[in-house]
């Protein structure tokens, strides 16, 4: 198997613009390895969410090549995308819980979408809710949950399907530092089971909390590589 085949994500000169505006991502090139833990950081508006959207296939790039699990997803026919989305777990910045479904049903949703039989759903969902400490709130609707509880439901939903890659957008944005650390430990535990993790955050304190993690920094839509995480580090245009 070639090196390229083992890479879980490859971005090659990717650019993204919304409509006719200026590019929000420019010349982004990097490679992610399976089983690694990445932080994606940068100031608000730097393009973290935009980059994750490209990864979880909510957006096509305006230019460049994106390979996911070894397949070029830019030119892939639309009807083949759902199968790729099912291999990802996503914690959205705004959670995106289904408002009229209970915490339990929200967590069960990815399994149901994947066609898992009802009999095989109850146990994993209960385990997962216990894992994030929400067993006692499983019948609660999202509106009655606290911000941190919602965040944990969103995380449970993202990891219930044992995704090959977890993409978490600001997953600690709504919680106190103590809870943030606990959630980070959840991601680490998952990472140890083999899931590639990408956590977008502008909380620089978190970055040092996961040993062995690598950092990608976005600055006005351009990528830099402070920990040498990237196979294709961006050119330092203003260097020297």
């Amino acid at each position: 198997m070639t090196d390229r085949g083992r890479d879980i994500v490859t971005f090659d000169n990717v650019g993204l613009r919304y409509g006719a505006d200026r590019e929000v991502l420019s010349d982004v090139s990097f490679t992610l390895h399976p089983g690694s833990f990445y932080f994606l950081t940068g100031a608000s508006g730097a393009g973290k969410t935009s980059l994750l959207k490209l990864l979880y296939l909510a957006q096509r790039p305006s230019r460049g090549v994106i390979r996911l699990f070894g397949t070029d997803t830019v030119t892939l026919p639309r009807k083949r995308l759902p199968a790729f989305r099912r291999r990802l777990g996503v914690v959205f910045q705004d959670f995106r819980l289904v408002p009229h479904l209970s915490a339990y049903d929200n967590v069960a949703l990815p399994l149901r979408v994947s066609g898992v039989r009802e009999a095989e759903i109850a146990k994993p969902v209960d385990d997962m809710l216990e894992w994030v400490g929400l067993s006692h709130r499983k019948e609660a609707k999202p509106a009655t949950l606290s911000g941190g509880e919602r965040q944990r439901v969103a995380i449970a939903r993202a990891v219930i399907g044992r995704p090959d890659m977890l993409l978490a957008d600001e997953p600690t944005g709504n919680v106190d530092p103590e809870m943030a650390l606990k959630l980070l430990r959840l991601f680490e535990a998952l990472n140890r089971l083999g899931t590639t993790v990408v956590v977008a955050t502008h909380d620089v304190h978190l970055l040092r909390k996961v040993s062995g993690s690598m950092i990608m920094r976005l600055d006005k839509g351009r990528l830099s590589d402070p920990t040498g995480a990237l196979r294709y580090p961006p050119r330092r245009e203003n260097a020297g």
């Binding site: 199968a83 095989e120 994993p124 219930i160 399907g161 959840l186």
Partner: peptide, 12 residues
């Protein structure tokens, strides 16, 4: 984390 077995039905 709980291991969810047999649920990664990646097909449609």
């Amino acid at each position: 984390p709980p291991v969810v077995k047999g649920n990664t039905a990646k097909g449609i």
